[in-house]
Design a binder for these strands. Structure first.
Length: 474
RNA sequence: GGCCCCGUCGUCUAACGGUUAGGACGUCAGAUUUUCAAUCUGGUAACGCGGGUUCGACUCCCGCCGGGGCUGCCA
């Protein structure tokens, strides 16, 4: 599921919720060539992951795809007779006509138009065929499509919920194919038939649909049906301002799920992409979005997908997780690599040390590694010029650390005592506390980034600390 | 080419005729008497251009420039 479609779904969901409406999932599978196995289930699972379950239409029940609601079927390939019926009605009213033109002729026609710098539009070749001939060719089973007869003399305008008044001139609108030769409708016909029959009153869709809206409006008026309100949301863009695409990052929601993003983070990010609350609030839960969202505050211009901001939001949300839940979530990951963590009664106490320093659950494994295995400590890590620890100074610091820790009684092995004694030693030896603490922390964890030295030392215990200091000394 | 949409810091955005043009992400600096992608503080950075209208324009109008979408028997 493309993140753009997902954001559109989010906006639709928000509008449905705040207006006590229904969020309907309809599957538009009218292109036989593009159907991909598992797509529907994938969409459903993704929506469920984020909490945007449909109220009506296609849904998942006990892992199976089902349809619920009184206006079904909700899968367009199961509604073919319906579209046929309405298409015939259009033909009989003179609003649509059969076209026998081959793809080859159409291509040639468009090429010629392009050459003459004209807009490529169907030349209505088949509109002028004699009635008898049309009947005979259809009778003879010749492949054909049905085209919309666009009233070229009028202009079509409507009020977009996001963009305001938009106007098109009939003579710039092409005679859109409504029914394909394979008996399937195009999106355009299916959309208006279904939205009318399913009583859809608000259509929120991507900006790429803006230019086909006049066709839809014409169709609604030909059936004498009231059109829904339309809201065309701006596109989501790549950093280079082109339409969001693969190649420049992930476009599928499934990829973000796989990378470990929380639904709260993605929802928060996408909710704020193209919409703003008008306040300085930037952390939004789904209920808060429902409460505050409005189409009036949706942006008109495209918005670049800013991965950095998504990551920041992810960090914000991961820190909001209650500790016990957080510990549960990371425990299975840690146990995968360190089976001895299974029965660790202190697991939560360790989890609390890392919750605010990670962005993804998966990072927990490395961040807790030194609790379940002996760290590999390198001299390069210990002797860090940035921490003012030189190779010459290192042996002395290690000796001082060992002596200092050795002198602390087991029953006073606390963060406070450690801090007090180490600071004292540092001062007595004209060292900065940081120089000693860097070495201690690095020796105990083997990591450049980890929880603080005191926390780690307390958790590890006196014996283990001395043991590790001894190991790096030799 | 034609039609339509859009144009405030690098990015997401606030402003709806009068502000030192605000916030957030990023970035930079400092703090956190140890690290950190965590936290805090501070800094950096924008009204595309040109005409109008007005006492006064980011805000209204026109033109230009720039970007995007569509231009399929795809959605």
């Amino acid at each position: 599921m493309h993140v753009g479609n997902f954001r559109t779904a989010l906006f639709a969901y928000l509008m449905a919720r705040q207006s006590n409406g229904r969020f309907i999932l309809r599957i538009e599978d009218t292109d036989q060539g593009r159907s991909v196995e598992g797509t529907v289930e994938n969409i459903l699972r993704t929506l469920h992951w984020s909490g945007l379950d449909p109220d009506e239409g296609v849904m998942l029940r006990k892992g199976l795809i089902t349809q619920e609601g009184t206006r079904g079927p909700y899968i367009q390939s199961e509604r073919l007779e319906l579209y046929r019926k309405y298409a015939d009605e259009l033909v009989s009213k003179g609003h649509a006509y059969p076209c026998f033109c081959t793809p080859e002729r159409l291509t040639k026609m468009r090429d010629e138009q392009a050459l003459k710098k004209q807009a490529p539009m169907y030349d209505r070749h088949c509109l002028h065929l004699p009635k008898k001939e049309i009947a005979d060719r259809i009778e003879g089973g010749e492949p054909h499509v049905l085209r919309l007869l666009v009233p070229r003399d009028r202009s079509i305008s409507y009020d977009d919920e996001i963009r305001g008044n938009v106007t098109f001139h009939g003579h710039t609108v092409d005679d859109q194919v409504l029914m394909k030769s394979d008996g399937f409708p195009t999106y355009h016909l299916a959309h208006i038939v279904d939205d009318h029959l399913m009583e859809i009153d608000l259509v929120i869709r991507g900006e790429e649909w803006l230019s086909s809206t006049p066709k839809h409006l014409i169709l609604f008026s030909m059936f004498d049906w009231a059109p829904p309100k339309y809201a065309h949301v701006p596109l989501i863009l790549n950093p280079d301002h082109t339409k969001l695409s693969k190649r420049q990052g992930s476009v599928a929601v499934e990829e973000y799920i796989a990378q470990g993003y929380l639904p709260e983070a993605l929802l928060n990010f996408l909710g704020l992409l193209g919409w703003n609350p008008g306040t300085t609030q930037d952390i939004f839960s789904l209920p808060e979005l429902i409460e505050q969202f409005s189409l009036e505050r949706v942006q008109k211009a495209g918005a670049v997908f800013d991965l950095k901001k998504l990551q920041w939001l992810q960090g914000q949300w991961i820190r909001k997780i209650p500790l016990s839940d957080f510990a549960d979530r990371i425990k299975s990951l840690v146990v995968e690599r360190y089976p001895n963590a299974v029965h660790d009664a202190q697991f939560s106490a360790k989890a609390v040390l890392i919750q605010e320093r990670l962005t993804f659950f998966s990072e927990a494994v490395d961040l807790l590694s030194f609790f379940y295995s002996e760290p590999k400590v390198t001299v390069e890590l210990l002797a860090n010029p940035k921490q003012k620890v030189t190779l010459e100074l290192l042996p002395k610091i290690l000796e001082l650390l060992k002596d200092t820790l050795e002198a602390i009684m087991k029953d006073e092995w606390t963060a406070d005592t450690l801090k007090e004694r180490i600071t004292g030693t540092a001062e007595a030896n004209t060292l900065k506390p940081g120089q000693m603490l860097w070495v201690l922390r690095a020796a105990l964890t083997g990591l450049a980034y980890s929880p603080g030295a005191f926390d780690v030392a307390v958790m590890l215990g006196k014996e283990k600390c001395l043991e590790r200091l001894e190991v790096v000394s030799v």
